[in-house]
Amino acid sequence: MNNWRDQEPVTDEDLVAYLDGKFEKEDTEWLEREINMDRALMERLELMRRGNRSFAQAYDLLLKDAPNKRLKQILKLAKNPPPPPVRKTQPEPVTPMAPGDHVHREPWGGWPVLAAAIVLLAVFAGGLVTSRFVSLPNELPQIAGVPVVQGWRARVAIYQKLFVKETLARASQNAQVQSANLRAALANVGLDLSVGSLSVEPLDFKRAEVLNFKGKALVQVAYLFEGETPVSFCIIRSKKPAFGVKEEQREGLNIAHWRSDEYGFMVIGDVPQKDLNRIAKTLKQQLS
C-alpha cells in the first residue's frame, strides 16, 4: 500500500485500505494529514466509513443454518463415489425372427428402465439428493440404429413406472420443509406456488424434484394417492399452443395432461383414469 502517494488523485480504494488498516504507519500518518486539510476528502472517508457493517457477525448466523448432516454425506459420497454404471455402447443388431423364436425381453424392463433406475439410485442413494437437477433417462431404445423419438411425457412415464410407495417414504412431512422444497423446485420453471395450491384430495404431497429433459428443467411433484399409490404432477415450460385436459396411457400408467400458453402439465400414476382426470381438472382450475 505504499505507491499511492504518487497517485493522483486519492481514490476510494486508498481510503478503504486506510480504514481496513492496510497502510504502513508512515503512510497512515501522511494520509491523515491530507484528510485533515481537505474537507471533500474527509467527507469521502466518512462515506466509506458509513459503508462498513458488522459483516462477520451477520454472516456467522448463516453458518448456524448450514445443513451440516447433508454436507457430511456429500463429502462422504465424494470420498467414496459409487462405481460408474456399465453402459451398453452398441445396440444389439436386429435380426429377423425365425419361426419358433421367442421374443426375449429382459424381465427388468430393458435399458430404458435400467437407465431410469440409475437415475433413481442417484437421487435416493442413502437418502441423499446429491443434485437437484437430475437427468431423466437418456438411453433411448434403438431399432436398427435409429433412435426412437420420445417426448417428455414418455420419459416421465419410464421414470414414474419405477415409483413405489416406499420411494416416497422418506420425504419430510414438515410443512416448512415441504414448502421450501416445493418453492425451490418450482423456481426452476419460473413458478412460485404453495403446497396448498397444489393440493387435491386424495393426494398427499410428498416432495418436489427438478429433472432434466433435454436441457430443460422439468419439475416433478410427487404425491401418494390414498396413502398408497405414487402419483406425480409434472410441469415443463412449453410454447406450444394451449389445450384442455386429455388422457393417454404410457408404460401401463394413466396420464391426464394439458397445456397453457407457457407450460405443459401432466398427472401420471397407476390409478383410475377418471380420478386422474378429476385431479388434473382441479389442478388446472387452481393454477388458472
Binding site: P9, D12, L15, M48, R50
Partner: peptide
Amino acid sequence: MSRLAAARAKLGQLNEDAPARRKKVDRRK
C-alpha cells in the same frame, strides 16, 4: 480493492440523504 471501495460507497450511500458524490477526490484542490 476497487470492488470493496464500490461496495463501501454503495452501502455508505444507503444511509445518506445527500446525492451520490463523485468517486475520486483531488486532494490538491
